[in-house]
Every structure is written in structure tokens, then in C-alpha cells.
Design a protein around this nucleic acid. Structure first.
Lengths: 389, 389
DNA sequence: CGCCATTTGTAGTCAAGGACAACAAATACC
DNA sequence: GGTATTTGTTGTCCTTGACTACAAATGGCG
């Protein structure tokens, strides 16, 4: 536990800091790096030079900045290091080549007829990876593969413990993909990766304490960012807000026997009331908006109360700066923002709530892929010196 | 936000690491420090020598260890640097001189007739501090004063936002004490400091992910340790588990209108059923144990279900290694441990629950003082080189 | 009792890495 | 065109931990 600290560690951390600035904060000039790190000009020059030599950054000619003084070279990520992010789901496997700076370079979606078995999914992924690599410029170097799994993933060995929607249980899926593809594979829960992505590149940029809840087809998942890093917990299973049982004001408002958040705040029930078979989020939002049915409004109001109670519990415990809602929960927020905020305020300690806002997620459908890419890039970002092109 | 890293920072961190080992883990020989840090022998020798010169550690003659090889000098905290920890409460102000290694050196309790105003409390504290300093050995150097406040404390400026039990609102209490005493003063919520103390010196030693809930006279407070450090949240108000509204299986089991954990799981209600005016925890536990009243058992069972729901929500979200219960909640745990565990298991994701245990707090009544002392020592522990004797 | 293996302390040297100072380069402003 | 300002570049210095060699202190064993 005590971090032994050697002189070389300073270089490693400083390289990581500089790469991080360019990758996450899209800092663009070397002078900005100097100002933001507080390091000496000459040191930054050496660090950037090393990262350029490693093939992780590129320096370009200064761009006219209309400021006094010698212009500083532009710094941006080298396009060559990439990862492949993959999200296996019940209806399709989606994958993308992602570069530094969350640049989604190439994206493919392979629909499947039936819910894939692990073996099916491995085969599809192996194929998709081959295709993506073949279609990418020759100079791309795939560092790793990142999997966003709709289920619980053990942090220690990336074992998929239980992915209810896919019906997978205790599947060493990451290891299977690794064997099939021959590249390092990392994996984590999809919602946790969504939280990470929103924190780094989305609605939560620059916010170091936030909670994220996403309403998807497979229920409600989430994640928390604490002091700028993802809350993992002991086994890596943290963030299961959807399985929580929030208090319900009026017993009649609880309509399921278990009373978990994801059972009560159910997208399917609203779709049902609207008489829709299926819809994507914009369609659903529009349908709710235009519907004249009182039953829909009553149901939305009921769900809102339960969602608010769950969010209130989370706010009391985390005192976050931001609550980010994605998918169906973003639709819920958009339906009546002030009312949801008021309902949350009613269930929180005033001090803990003050200064907290609730916002919709910003990254759309690339969110999970960006999160998975971040995970795959992590070893490189932590220790850029180890990168071998 | 990016941590600029200079060469001198290495020394600072290594000094902190060594001091931390002796302070928190009570490491006793220089050779152990070498082994645990992974640093070089000669480096550790230099670090320890510097800490000795600073008056923070003492080296003693080697003690017979019955092991082959040259014996290594014993290392222990220097008794001179101390802090004064203070816990103002409704019925008394408790304070203690605490040295490194959580050594409670001298402890005083000043009962008060009425709930103290901030001004009352400041006067008492000023007096108690004078007394403690006068009664301490001349060589003691008081680094700071740490306050454990039964209420919400803003992290940025230590303002007491709301201490319901004391009736204080928006009181700059830490600043008032600082003015009166002339020493640096730090402050935080009492339950958060309890969590910190249990993590470092109590039931949660060596556990980096835990949650702590305490049932006290003023309700239920708590805190979470995430990756080895206290979860503070944006403003410092995190950990308000007591204000959460857990789901209740059977509506009849909810007996209050708000339905918050601390209203439902109420010590007062059980005291009432037992026909007791007041009792300390051991007395209460004994009374519950020996009571033949079915009403008591029913009420305990009811409360247990609600406590379990709240703990289940927390376990789903934090996936902690340990749940530590203090005060009245420890009494609840002791009443029927397997039943409480079963009830929590029923409300959690199996993977998140697995490997989690629920244990009673270990530190008794010194807990808050040890936590407050830790807070007061923190600047010294973070940067021992700055210490000026 | 003496020798050896083992462990640890001690002293001196070395290498890594960031700070700093001095100078050069490139821009805006007047 | 001259000046102030900002930044890149180069060389030197300081801090710090690693490493090596040797000394010291212990237990084990013949």
C-alpha cells in the first residue's frame, strides 16, 4: 500500500500528466501545457519531445494566435496509437477504432438474429476486429481491445459474473476474446464505462464528483466518479443503482413486488401505455410529449417520484457536483426538469443538494465505446514510457 | 488539477510514506520499513534520520528478535508532536491530547447543563485546551486542534452549516475556536471522522473500501472510505446515510411519515418499549437481550428489515469489502447477526454482496477523538518536512 | 568456542530528472 | 524599425534514490 517513490517515477508521472492533458483536455499548445502543469518550459519541451519520439503526440507549426510573444507549437495526439472498443449486446455487436482524444475513427454494427452466446460473440468480435484493422490506415497500432459488457465484470480477472440480458454467467469472456484475437483485452461494466466517458468527454467534463445513471433496454445501470476516478468497489461491481430499493412515498405508487429502481422506473411500461412496440429515445420522448393520455402522465409522474427518491439517496451519500442521466432517464429528465429537481430536493439534506445539478448525458451512442476505449488506453496513459510502437 | 511533479516531491512523499507506516501501521523496525516501502536500505536510513531530526520519530536500541542477522533499530513515534481533539455535544464537551499512532494521552469531559451555544462551546474549549496544555509534559508541541462536529461541515472553510442537535446553523465555529485558542483548527462531521478512525485504527484496518454507519443520540450518521480515503463529495457533506429513504417491503413496517433511515431505525422507540428513560449501549443491548416483550422483538425485527434495506442499497452502490456499524446500529447487529446479513443479502446484487462482511465498530468512545486527531495531524502527515518543532 | 551464513547499517559514488539562467527567436504594438 | 513580451533552446546545477562495498551484529553448527 505505501507507494515507494523513485526518481524515475517522477518522469513517468509527468509524461502521463502531459499526455493526459492532450488526451482528455485537448490542450493544444506547448505553452498551455507549461502553464497547466506548472512545470518548467525546458522540462515540458523534453517531455513533449519524448512523447513525440514515442509516437504518442505530434507537434505542428504554431497557429496564429494574435497574442504577443513567440508562438508555441501546436500539440495534438498522434493518430497512430488506437484501441478497438466493443459493446456486445442482445441485438448487435458494435465496435469502433478509437484514437487518443476519444476520436472515433471507424464504427461498425453487426446485428444478430438471436441473443449471442459467448462463443457467437467471440466469433463476431474476432471478425469485426479483422475487418476494422484491415480497413484502417496501415500505420495504426492497436494497443488493446476494450469491452463494454452489459453485466457485472470482476475487476481482478475480467470474468463476466452475470449478464442477465445476455444470459451469460461466470464467463471468462475477456480471456476468450484475448485468445481469439491475440491482443490484450480489458473489460468492465457498460454503465461504469458510460460514467467514465461522460466524466472525461461528456456532460461531466472537469467535474470530479458525479454520479451517472443510465436507463437502457436492459434496465438501469450507473457509476460514480469520486475525486476524478471511477468508483469500483472491492470486486469492481460498484454502481448498481438500478438494483436499489428507494423509499416510496405512497404505497400505491409501488407497482412491483421487488420495488427495485429499474423495475419501478420502467421504460417498457410507458411504451405500453403509449401503445408502442419499440422506439428509440427521441421517438419515445416525442411520443410522451405529444400524448394526450392522462395514464401516461400519471405513470411518468409516478416513476419520477421513485427516480427522485433514488437520486436523493445517492445525493445524500455522495454529495456530488453533478447528476448525469442517460438514455431513458434523460428522457425522464427532459419531460419535466424542474419537477424532478424539486422532487430530489425534497428528499435530500439541503446542504448536500445545494450546488448540485441534474443534466442529461452528452455523448449519445458513442458513450460506451469511448468509455471502453478509455479503459483500453489506460495502461498507455498511466505509463506512456512503456509504449512500444 | 494535473499534479506537477518535481524531484523534491519524491522526498516529500517518501517521508510521508515512512511516517505513515509508523503512525498508522505501527511498524516497529527500520528493516520493516525497508521491506514494506521497497525503498533502498540507505534511503530509508536517511529518511528515518530526517524524521528523527524533525522530532517526529524516535529510534531506539534493537530489541531481541531471535532472527538471524544484524538487528534493526526500533522505530516509533516521537511523543512530542500532539494535537487536541474535541467533540462538542449536547450534554458535554469531550477533548483529548492525542499523539501520533492514535495514542490518546489525556482525556477530559466537561458536562454542560444546557445545550451549549457556539459561544458557550468556544469558551469551554478554550478553557479545556488551556487545561490540557498545562497538564501535559512541557515538551509537547500542539500542532493543531481537530473538531468532530455533530452536523454538516463545509469542507472549503469549515463552516458549520447545520448541526440540528445543537441547534447551530451557519456558524463559523472553527474560525471562532481558532480566534480564541490561537492554534490552527480543522473540523469535520463526527460520523465521517468515525469512519476514518475505524478505517485507520479500528475494525476497518487495512480495508480500503468500506462503509460505516453509526447510530447515536442525534440520529444516524456515516461515512465511506473509497480507495483508502474518506469520501467527501463536493462540499464535504457526503455520507448522510441517515437521511436516506430505503424501500420498505411491507408498508405497515413504515411508521414515520418521512421514512428516513434514522426516523425508522430509532433507538428511542426501542427504549420506549423497554420502559427505559435512557441507557448506554451495553445497558440497552442487555435490556433487549433479557426482555421477554414480544413488542420489543417485533420492533427490532421491523427496524432490522429497514436497516438491511438501507445497507443493501449502499452495498449495491459501493460494493464495499466491509460494513462497519457503530453505536446503536452495532447493538442491532449484535442482536441477530445472521438474520441481518441474510436480510442484506436479499436486497443486494449477489456479486456485490459476496465477500462483504458486517462487523461492529472496534474503537469505542475514543473513536471520534481519534478521527478528529487524524484530521488535525493530516497536514503534518502529508508533508512532514514542513513540521517545525 | 570459533567459523560461517545471514541480515542490516553505513559511507561513497552514480545516474536520473527537473529547476534555473542566459540567450535566441518570433510575435504584437507603437 | 524599435521595444516589450512570450516562448523555444541549451547548458549547468541541485536534489534524490539506487547501487556497491564493507562493516557490524546476530544465530547456527561443528
Amino acid at each position: 500500500m505505501p507507494a515507494p517513490d523513485h526518481v524515475e517515477g517522477v518522469r513517468r508521472r509527468n509524461l502521463a500528466t502531459v499526455l493526459d492533458l492532450v488526451h482528455h483536455r485537448r490542450v493544444s499548445s506547448r505553452a498551455d501545457v507549461t502553464a497547466l502543469t506548472g512545470l518548467n518550459r525546458s522540462t515540458v519541451a523534453a517531455l513533449v519531445a519524448e512523447l513525440v519520439a514515442l509516437g504518442l503526440l505530434e507537434e505542428g507549426d504554431p497557429v496564429a494566435s494574435s497574442r504577443v510573444g513567440r508562438p508555441s507549437p501546436v500539440v495534438h495526439p498522434d493518430p497512430r496509437p488506437v484501441v478497438i472498443a466493443v459493446n456486445p449486446e442482445v441485438d448487435a455487436v458494435t465496435a469502433a477504432v478509437v484514437g487518443l482524444g476519444a476520436r472515433v475513427e471507424r464504427r461498425v454494427r453487426r446485428p444478430v438474429d438471436a441473443v449471442p452466446t459467448p462463443e457467437d460473440a467471440v466469433a463476431i468480435i474476432a471478425d469485426v476486429v479483422r475487418e476494422l484493422v484491415a480497413a484502417s490506415p496501415r500505420n495504426r497500432r492497436v494497443a488493446a481491445i476494450g469491452l463494454a459488457i452489459p453485466g457485472l465484470v470482476r475487476a481482478s480477472d475480467r470474468l463476466v459474473r452475470w449478464a442477465s440480458h445476455l444470459g451469460w454467467r461466470e464467463v471468462p469472456f475477456a480471456a476468450m476474446v484475448e485468445d481469439a484475437v491475440g491482443l490484450p483485452v480489458v473489460a468492465d461494466n457498460d454503465a461504469s464505462l458510460g460514467a467514465l466517458a461522460e466524466h472525461l468527454f461528456g456532460a461531466g467534463r472537469g467535474v470530479d464528483d458525479l454520479i451517472y445513471l443510465n436507463g437502457g433496454a436492459s434496465g438501469i445501470g450507473g457509476g460514480a466518479i469520486v475525486r476524478g476516478s471511477l468508483l469500483t468497489g472491492r470486486g469492481g461491481y460498484a454502481g448498481e443503482f438500478g438494483q436499489n430499493r428507494p423509499g416510496v412515498d405512497d404505497p400505491h405508487n409501488r407497482v412491483t413486488s421487488r420495488g427495485t429502481l429499474e423495475d419501478e422506473v420502467s421504460r417498457a411500461r410507458v411504451l405500453d401505455l403509449l401503445g408502442l412496440e419499440s422506439a428509440d429515445e427521441p421517438q419515445l420522448a416525442a411520443a410522451i410529449e405529444t400524448s394526450a393520455s392522462p395514464a401516461v402522465r400519471v405513470e411518468m409522474r409516478r416513476q419520477q417520484g421513485i427516480l427522485a427518491a433514488a437520486l436523493g439517496n445517492a445525493v445524500n451519500v455522495f454529495n456530488p457536483e453533478l447528476v448525469v442521466l442517460g438514455g431513458y432517464l434523460a428522457t425522464h429528465l427532459a419531460w419535466d426538469p424542474p419537477s424532478l429537481e424539486d422532487a430530489v430536493r425534497d428528499t435530500t439534506v439541503p446542504a448536500a443538494w445545494e450546488g448540485t445539478s441534474i443534466v442529461p448525458a452528452a455523448l449519445g451512442e458513442d458513450r460506451l465505446l469511448i468509455g471502453a476505449a478509455e479503459l483500453a488506453f489506460r495502461p498507455l496513459l498511466r505509463d506512456p514510457g512503456k509504449w512500444n510502437p
